[in-house]
């Protein structure tokens, strides 16, 4: 024996150590396996979308209006534009409210009764089914103005996005190291200067990721749009008129008995997924640049 006194690493160098090694390896393999499973749905979905909808991808899809049911040709440029516009309207309303609200509940008065109430209500709101948001915007805007409109659709999506933006923004702000705040306050900065010059730039990438999460979810919602913006065969002209959207187009076309329209629905799904991914990638790229 090379070591007359057993080294402590070698202590009990027998079955116990072997069992421990084996368990360690088994657990690692299990974790890798389960991680792989989580990416299976995404990739099989993408595969399916490309297989079913990829063949119809062409420039005309983005530039032309949908053909009447039963007829072939055309595209769904109006639905793409409509989705972008309504998500834009929704972000216009929910973005500033969500971010400024998060700044208040994270920075200014985290322990106040108002902050606790806002946090609680936001968490409740995240659990509200999207169709209820549609019903809300329907009652609030469609019934009072007397007609369906893109604005109502945007408001419905804004209600849906607001709690996500608020909660992820608050988490983003809380994720900023408090040592930056100490340094800033210690130098005599006001709360406003500390938040705008130091905390917010640090939290921005995470905030934008949260915002994009909300945008991605809103872009794919059908139920709230169905009640509010309805659909339109033409190009968007005004946000006070009904407007086409990708999700409602997919919903409508997939229920039609014509194979061509069903095929279009697949292609529209692919475009929708592509748009959401594109927005996410752009956001990641644009907001992750650091000094």
């Amino acid at each position: 024996m090379s070591h007359p006194i057993p080294h402590f690493f070698q202590h009990n160098h027998n079955k116990t150590a072997f069992g421990r090694l084996l368990r360690n390896h088994l657990l690692t393999v299990l974790c890798v396996f389960l991680s792989c499973i989580t990416i299976v749905p995404l990739f099989s979905l993408l595969y399916l979308l490309f297989k079913k909808g990829g063949s119809f991808l062409s420039l005309s899809i983005f530039t032309e209006l949908p053909a009447s049911p039963g007829l072939e040709g055309g595209g769904f440029g109006n639905a793409i534009l409509g989705t972008l516009m309504m998500v834009g309207i929704a972000t216009f309303f929910s973005g500033p409210i969500g971010i400024l609200g998060a700044i208040f509940i994270a920075e200014y008065a985290p322990l106040s009764r108002l902050a606790r109430t806002v946090r609680f209500v936001a968490k409740l709101l995240t659990g509200i089914p999207s169709i209820i948001c549609g019903a809300f915007a329907f009652a609030m805007i469609v019934l009072t103005t007397g007609h369906f409109s893109a604005l109502a659709g945007g408001v419905a999506l804004a209600v849906l996005m607001l709690p996500t933006i608020l909660i992820t923004s608050e988490l983003a702000l809380l994720g900023v190291s408090s040592s930056y705040r100490d340094a800033s306050y210690g130098l005599g900065a006001t709360p406003f200067q500390t938040i705008w010059c130091i905390v917010l730039p640090e939290a921005l990438p995470a905030m934008m990721r949260g915002m994009m999460l909300a945008v991605a979810r809103a872009a794919g919602e059908t139920a709230p749009i169905l009640f509010t913006a309805l659909f339109s065969q033409g190009w968007p002209r005004s946000i006070l008129e009904p407007m086409a959207s990708l999700s409602v187009l997919i919903y409508n076309f997939s229920a039609l008995p014509y194979p061509y329209q069903v095929q279009m629905a697949w292609t529209a799904s692919l475009v929708l997924v592509g748009m959401v991914t594109g927005i996410n990638l752009i956001a990641q790229w644009a907001f992750c640049k650091k000094i």
Binding site: S179, A183, G186, L187, G188
Partner: peptide
């Protein structure tokens, strides 16, 4: 007051 009194912390905390 804080502008007249500088402070240096335990963990160095330069801004990013």
């Amino acid at each position: 007051l804080r502008r007249r009194i500088g402070m240096v912390f335990q963990k160095s905390n330069p801004f990013p």
